[in-house]
């Protein structure tokens, strides 16, 4: 099967490669120069959500599991990092590591519970587990209740780069995000990624081939949780704040929207979706329009009219002109 798809894809990879290289260089230039034109902290926010949505995409897009509880990892890691940096006085790197570690363990536990059920039950279990984290965040004293943890110190990168400057913060977060996306890209292109795709397409068949389906799902879920945690930790440091908003079910829903809107199961889709949603919210926040209502409307439109998402639609059209049969991958 792998062999077949590899030969089928061969002619297109070559014709794409120069275009791709050019696009990649252009994109890199834009991303590196962006803080010259746009307020860097706004870009940092976009980057955090790009990482978050791409992390969710591992389970939602590539493994076909709808997690409705990813806010627990994002917001949970934000609390831990904020607490570690502010109260324990840990340096930036260790505070982020603490947050990511927390999200990883939480992901392992939630994942182990949730994969015991399938389909919509999986979605409901993850939602309920995340809501438990929300209630804990409301009640536990260290989270600061409604106020959250404020004035989290920026710190420095390796004791050298002052992260109080928003431009340096941008490049540091950019580095982390690029690292996260690279990890996802490698994972998806690896045999592990192919097994995930096989499970997504037909779980029964994957099982009958002797694959330990649960184990692969759990690894994917935990990886996804860890990277979501990284996104949350970075956001907490960059904005000096960890708050309840980051652990609500709205947050879980929003990141699903980003992934869906951009294009589930594509590498670039979640980035497109995150950029779109964060920008939209940014411009709406001063307009006085009801944001939640508009987010909901976008959700409905997206599910009804273009389920492949913005990037997914574009890619499908491009591929359709070149190679009608192969829309997989």
């Amino acid at each position: 099967m792998t062999l077949l798809s590899a030969t089928a894809a061969a002619p297109t990879t070559r014709s794409f490669s120069t275009v791709r290289l050019f696009l990649l260089v252009a994109a890199a230039a834009v991303v590196l120069a962006a803080p010259l034109a746009i307020y860097p902290l706004f870009l940092v926010k976009i980057l955090c959500f790009i990482l978050f949505a791409s992390a969710l995409n591992i389970v939602l897009g590539f493994a076909g599991l709808l997690s409705f509880g990813h806010a627990a990892f994002f917001g949970g890691a934000a609390y831990i990092t904020a607490h570690a940096a502010k109260v324990w006085g840990l340096p930036f790197e260790l505070a982020v590591l603490a947050g990511v570690g927390f999200a990883t363990v939480l992901g392992l536990v939630f994942g182990a519970l949730a994969i015991r059920r399938h389909g919509i039950y999986f979605a409901m279990v993850t939602l309920a587990l995340a809501q438990m984290v929300y209630f804990l965040a409301v009640q536990l004293p260290f989270t600061g209740g409604e106020d959250g943890i404020q004035s989290v110190p920026h710190g420095t990168l390796l004791g050298i780069v002052d992260l109080g400057k928003s431009t340096s913060m941008y490049y540091v977060v950019l580095g982390f995000t690029a690292f996260g996306l690279f990890v996802i890209w490698r994972a998806i292109r690896s045999p592990f990624g192919h097994i995930l795709a096989a499970i997504r397409e037909n779980e029964q068949r994957a099982r009958s081939l002797g694959l330990n389906v649960e184990r692969y799902k759990l690894i994917a879920f935990t990886l996804s949780a860890a990277l979501s945690g990284l996104a949350g930790s970075l956001k907490a440091i960059a904005f000096q704040l960890a708050s309840l908003a980051d652990v609500t079910w709205h947050m879980s829903g929003e990141v699903i929207l980003m992934t869906l809107l951009g294009g589930m199961g594509t590498l670039i889709g979640p980035a497109v979706g995150a950029t779109f949603v964060v920008s939209m919210e940014h411009y709406l926040s001063t307009s006085g329009l009801p944001i939640t209502f508009i987010i909901g409307t976008v959700f409905v439109i997206c599910v009804m009219l273009f389920r492949r998402g913005i990037y997914g639609e574009i890619r499908a059209r491009l591929l359709a002109t070149r190679q009608p049969s192969d829309l997989g991958d």
Partner: peptide, 13 residues
């Protein structure tokens, strides 16, 4: 599920 989630957001918003 996603559709009805969107409807829920619309109504609540």
């Amino acid at each position: 599920l996603l559709l009805t989630f969107g409807v829920a957001l619309m109504l609540e918003g």
